[in-house]
Design a binder for these strands. Sequence first.
RNA 1: GCUCUGGUGGUGGAAUGGUAGACACGAGGGACUUAAAAUCCCUUGCCCGCAAGGGCGUGUGGGUUCAAGUCCCACCCGGAGUACCA
Length: 969
Amino acid sequence: MEYNFSELEPRWQKWWKEEGVYHVENGGGAEGRPHFYVLDMFPYPSGAGLHVGHPLGYIASDIYARYKRLKGYNVLHPMGYDAYGLPAEQYAIQTGQHPAVTTEKNIARYREQLDKIGFSFDWDREVRTCDPKYYKWTQWTFIQLFKHYYDNTVGKAMPIAQLEARFAKQGTEGLDAACTEELSFSADDWNSYDENRRQQVLMNYRLAYLADTYVNWCADLGTVLANDEVVGGLSVRGGYPVERKLMRQWSLRISAYAQRLVDGLEQVDWTDSLKEIQRNWIGRSEGAAVYFQVESGKRKVEREAAAPGELSTFHSPLSTFEIFTTRPDTIFGVTFMVLCPEHELIDSITTPEQKSEVEAYVTWAKNRSERERQAEVKKVSGVFTGAYAINPLTEEKIPIWVSDYVLAGYGTGAIMAVPAHDSRDFAFARHFNLPIRQVVSLEKDVTSDPSTWTESMDAKTGYSVNSGFVSGMKVKEAMKAVIDRIEEMGIGHRTVNFRLRDAIFSRQRYWGEPFPIYYKDNVPYTIPEECLPLELPEVSEFKPTATGEPPLGHAQKWAWDEKNRCVVDKALVDNRTVFPLELSTMPGFAGSSGYYLRYMDPTNDKEYFSADAVDYWQNVDLYVGGAEHGTGHLIYARFWNKFLFDLGMAKKEEPFQKLINQGMIQGRSNFVYRSKADNNLYISKGLIKNMDDVTPIHVDINIVDNDVLDVERFREWRPEFKEARFELEDGKYVCGWEVEKMSKSMYNVQNPDDLVARYGADTLRLYEMFLGPVEQAKPWDTNGIEGVHRFLKKFWKLYDNCLNESQGADQAIKQSSNQALKVLHQTIKKVTDDIERFSFNTAVSTFMICVNTLTEQKCGSREVLKPLAVLMAPFAPHVAEELWHQLGEKGSVCDAEWPEYDEKMLVEDTVKYPVQFNGKMRFMLELPAAATQQEALEAVKAAPESAKWMTGEPKKVIFVPKKIINIVC
RNA sequence: GCUCUGGUGGUGGAAUGGUAGACACGAGGGACUUAAAAUCCCUUGCCCGCAAGGGCGUGUGGGUUCAAGUCCCACCCGGAGUACCA
């Protein structure tokens, strides 16, 4: 019988669906199977559909999920869609097509493509982030974040109501909580505050909070963006310029979790590189906070002290400011101070003489685009304020400068500059001719003249010099000694800073989750949880309004009726019972942060997910997806999960136990070469004498086979090639090739449907795995797919011997020979090992070796072929299912039992030893498996080949049983 | 700049200190066929040699070891992340 994949694959896909083969129940049934959760990062359904790179991870995880199921696990393997997003909305702005319509269409296309590949997804659990039944819980979580604060003393999120109770009883006394700004007030103060004032104070602590912050504003997209959505001053989506802008926005206080996010990395089984990406992004650094006094006396600064509890923009009392340093040991080398241009102190300390210069600089620096600033990092700029600070340890007078190399968002926005030991301070000092003082030397007491240096000495090694009481100490000791002294003096303390900023959570866009928030007198209130979901309203336009409001400003029915607890027309807003609703929507990462939990209990309309469901599944055992989510989704999801863990909902603090990054599939482009001398002449690659004589032109990889161009289809491809002439080699036009990004513009996009149609899903699955290690980036090259397809045909043919009764006269081949059993057991062992370590490419090779050997042996034994079909089932489920049924089984091969190998079957009587002389392999020698070193040596001496290499008695003999013999002479 | 990765035939890759190049692709040769497709067989790291055989080979240079693609040190090149984070 022929291997007719195009008939059998759809047939089994239909059967699986009808039989509900991939339906999964929580609890695993009466037999109490152990649970296992395999998850793929769900896709954004783009209009382009899947290309061959997308399914790579899905295939790997599908193999693993199917394998685990065969091993007796109850495996959760769901799929869904990250359906909110910019492209559908941009398309809506251009065409007026509602993003919901585009999204629906794209999802249908994705589903069709996914179905063809034969995944074992339980589609009954599908989630879509844009589905109100789903985003109800995204909104719900937001409300919980709003209603909680982070208490540092217990190290977890606590209800905001407890904070209110505390304020009423003791004010801020003894409070250690994550906040935007340190506040200090008494119980009496609190009790005297009105509702608005209290709400303002609470906002300072909420985990989801509204605040004026510098945000990444992208004018072209009309929205703010989170830090991970901006790279090099440009938006990740679309590549539009981004500027810094002070705006009132929702943020999530993820920084409260920074330490736990670092610590949690110790518990998970992720690649070092991904953990490193997260560590860098979180950017933990230990150091000291030190207060510097501004020199007083020259001029008197008048300012009314901030009233207790007032949300002033001032952090510290006027005459001192706080700096953060990781090098407290270098405090004796401070020769100037630098404030960021946004620093609140600038106005009050600048001397009249410097005023105009400072103001000009600050204005210039603030208006600079982020991109400009980043591009000109090497250019030093700054201005002297005229004011001086006092070094608390030396009592020296130190000039205070302003420069944009100090960032407002990190630490306190102010630094002590130690030009000798910090490259940025060094560059600044050189530029403005400020003194440089060496306070660290590599060897004890050996100093040189810093004016001769070409660069600063930044390393945290060596000894302190010129440093008062720490002189002569090692850098590490000096750090500790200085902090101790500073703490004694009460002018600073050790502290930890994180680079991780709070996540800006508002987007001025339409296609996202609405905030369940309305405003009373500009104070935000959450709509009652029972009223969720707050559904995305219809709008007349997807663009911002004429007054610059987000698209939801166009929605007519968009106001909250507090009394009737429903959404009403905004014309009814009276700010007494009917209030305006929030106009921003949530960002992409809102819906993708907790979706893995929702899969556990996807249709629950009472809760996010039931306690039973999460008790059963716990967390994701294996998560497969791209490393590009290292600083976005994977941080947010971990934060989200930790918050839900604090609420007692998530059972594990880390959501994704093991994580595998699938490598990017790069494109492999083909080129034709047009002669520069003759515009219609295309020269085959091998005939080009000088590359300068030709112009390489991208050519569609679909009209190229094994780098040979189909010249007829090329002429039809585009009108300008209609009259093309060719210079052929051996009658063929050979194209050049190069590895590039897979993209439409390079005509190197490979669509999985075409390959499924041509070779079948099983071939595609095997080939994607065969290409190389899953984690590694690799170019897509269809050239090798034939080999895998040939293998499947051969595999199929093997079963003829077993199944075909008319030819079955030859009973001998139906008997299982020891040889065949041995091959089978070797295969079981290797394939099991390979799957366990996610080495799917070598597993496929092992199958090839197995089938080649069994074919040579003419094996037709059921005893061998039946388990082999099970082994193949995770990789090529369709053909395995077909053969399984042809062998007479009634149930699905998915529910078979994974074969165990028998060590006894693998025992060899003899071992072929490589014999080395002085480490060089010279010949092979077959010895009994039980041979001792002595016997081996005798045999080597007796071997005729040895004569040439043996010079007298060996000096040393290395004998590694079953591995090698090495004679040293 | 910093961090992480990777560097092995014409190509994708294999080799968990023990025969470097498994398994495939491509290429060359052959069988079957009127022919083609399909299928099957042989050769295929480089160099010397008719052959037997030998030499050289895993980015470069050192080192550890009986033995190094694999471990250590220094460097070169590619890819990714990040970027004035004090």
